[in-house]
Design a protein around this nucleic acid. Structure first.
Lengths: 167, 167
DNA sequence: ATCCGATGCTTCGAATTCGAAGCAATATGT
DNA sequence: ACATATTGCTTCGAATTCGAAGCATCGGAT
């Protein structure tokens, strides 16, 4: 246990610090824009955006939760909220009675369309403005790489349900 | 209003998506480790870590809040919590009666020392493991650049106090 | 010396978040 | 077919988060 006190190189440290900082600042900026323009939280926007991309504007709750890296209970809460605002509908899946299918409504698409330009603008301004094309490409490559790595190995974002070996 | 629908290039989109995903996943992983090992939230850890770096283990509330990109009220809450656990102390600044100086205690340092190795390990595993040395360097450079850009221009993280033009 | 805006922090209430526990439907093994 | 584990979602309670409002102090102008 005392054999290997793990270390980060100065470069790694710098990368980690700057990464978390950018992530925080960017998120705050984006959240503000979404709140101001569409009265959406970041999560809500992410959910709508995912649905907008999905075929038929529909996805299962679990897939949505995994997609945005979010707890299932939190998703239930937000889905309810979005449903009350008429931006999505929820219905049990015909194929699997357990599943709930969330579907983007026309209203939802409208709101999405309304906030989208400003969102893009914010991302452009805050994240990309100071970067060269090569930087962006590099960033895309590296982040995709890490993301794949993260998605691959560990017990998925939400509740890993297995549990029997410990205790 | 309809003149310039801003766009992100496919590369930018990929970079943005992967970036937010990595940021979420990494954060979750790190949070779990901190919770398990030291019963610390991410924010609490960041606060302790900042204090650990600061000369004398002390910082003003506002500087801490800016440092971790956090609301002032949230910081008050967490500082209270950390004080109750004996990990920090709070005292009014001698120089400026308004300011509260937060100081890391020996207990605080112990907890920090206890969680640190696992934290580093987690960051190494989840963020850097799949990256080459050049990738890391690049990441550090780009993130530092963006961070500087973000810190520079906008009304700072927390409450921009001005308010007079709108109603 | 004194007024007034700016600054630093806290309190307050509302909204959001999570994990644990619970319930229903499905899959799997025999 | 039937028991058992697994999966999908929701409910519950507790903890965290934020922004607005409030209070005290400071700085700079008169």
């Amino acid at each position: 246990m005392s054999t290997r006190p793990p270390q980060l190189s100065p470069t790694e440290l710098a990368a980690y610090f700057a990464f978390t900082e950018v992530s925080s600042l960017l998120r705050h900026a984006v959240e503000k824009q979404l709140r101001d323009v569409g009265k959406l939280s970041y999560v809500q926007f992410q959910l709508l955006a995912r649905l907008g991309d999905a075929p038929g504007g529909s996805q299962r709750m679990t897939d949505l939760a995994d997609g945005v890296v979010y707890s299932r209970s939190g998703l239930t809460y937000q889905a309810q909220s979005l449903e009350e605002r008429g931006l999505v509908t929820r219905q049990p899946s015909p194929e699997d009675e357990r599943s709930t299918i969330v579907t983007l409504t026309d209203s939802g698409r409208e709101v999405l369309a309304k906030v989208f330009p400003g969102h893009i603008e914010a991302v452009k301004t805050h994240l990309f403005e100071s970067l060269s094309a090569e930087d962006v490409e590099m960033l895309a490559r590296v982040m995709t790489q890490v993301s794949g790595h993260l998605r691959a190995e560990p017990p998925r974002s939400a509740a890993p349900r297995r549990r029997s070996s410990d205790h």
